[in-house]
């Protein structure tokens, strides 16, 4: 249905929409706002996915470390998962409070040298995208952490022991045992996260609504604005189709990867 809209002019709004072929696509690709949204999306997705991987990995290794008691680890695990439990609007409003010019974040940063006072985090067009990425990292890493933790616990301890006997250092056994063993999981979750981050809408919408000056406008925001503010369902459908195609391509790889893992 959404694909059909993309070939029509004035879909939904008009009773008898005209078929315009690929005209909508030409118009879309000529729109600089579309390219702006696309590049924001790419930055947002790349930063989020990589940071999620790194932070998820560190936390999972901490929770799997043999230096702590089970009790400590259980408590830490519950705390670490917390950000993921909160709904997007709570996340958005909470960070909005903390990022206020006279809010807690600015207060804490005052102890660091060379920090400009009272930063307007969300209304500064150079900072907003970074902040959004950070917040997305905060509420997204627990998923990685749990998945990686499950993977880590599945690695047999014998592997590490025999590596230690052979004189391998911790870094070496990390690179040669942990990473290869986790590879299928890492690839799967990175692809899943890629799809989710690509379509993420809620937090950005509530924090900045795409602003200031479209500096945080991702494709989802762009589509939503087209459809529900400009009521241009045809163009929104066109942009949505483009997004859909990207997601489907990644999804095909994901399904293949899953099949490989099962075999």
């Amino acid at each position: 249905m959404v694909i059909r809209y993309s070939f029509l002019d004035k879909a939904v709004v008009s009773k008898s929409p005209a078929f315009v072929g690929t005209e909508n696509y030409t118009e879309l690709f000529a729109d600089s706002a579309f390219w702006n949204a696309a590049s924001n999306t790419i930055i947002f997705v790349a930063v989020s996915v990589i940071a999620h991987l790194v932070i998820g990995m560190i936390f999972a290794m901490l929770l799997n470390s043999k230096y702590f008691t089970t009790r400590t680890k259980t408590i830490a695990r519950v705390i670490y998962i917390l950000p993921w439990v909160f709904t997007a609007s709570v996340v958005a409003i909470l960070w909005k409070l903390m990022l206020q010019p006279s809010g807690i974040i600015n207060y804490l940063l005052e102890f660091l040298p060379q920090v400009t006072k009272n930063t307007e985090w969300l209304s500064n067009k150079d900072l907003a995208l970074t902040v959004i990425c950070f917040i997305n990292i905060w509420c997204g890493y627990p998923f990685y952490m749990i998945s990686i933790l499950a993977g880590l616990q599945g690695i047999s301890g014998d592997l590490y022991e025999s590596a230690a006997i052979d004189g391998a250092t911790m870094t070496k056994s990390f690179i040669h045992i942990t990473i290869p063993q986790l590879k299928p999981i890492l690839i799967s979750i990175a692809m899943l996260d890629f799809i989710w981050t690509l379509q993420s809408f809620n937090v950005i919408w509530m924090l900045t609504g795409g602003g200031p000056v479209n500096s945080t406008e991702t494709l989802s925001i762009y589509i939503y604005k087209l459809a529900f503010q400009k009521l241009d369902y045809s163009m929104a459908g066109t942009a949505a189709t483009v997004l859909l195609i990207v997601c489907v391509i990644v999804a095909i790889f994901y399904v293949r990867q899953q099949k490989k893992v099962r075999e």
Binding site: V2, Y5, I195, S220, I223, Y233
Partner: peptide, 17 residues
Amino acid sequence: VSVQAIPPIVLLIPYMG
């Protein structure tokens, strides 16, 4: 399986209709 890969924002427009 494939339904899970479709972005909600893509579905939103036809759902609306």
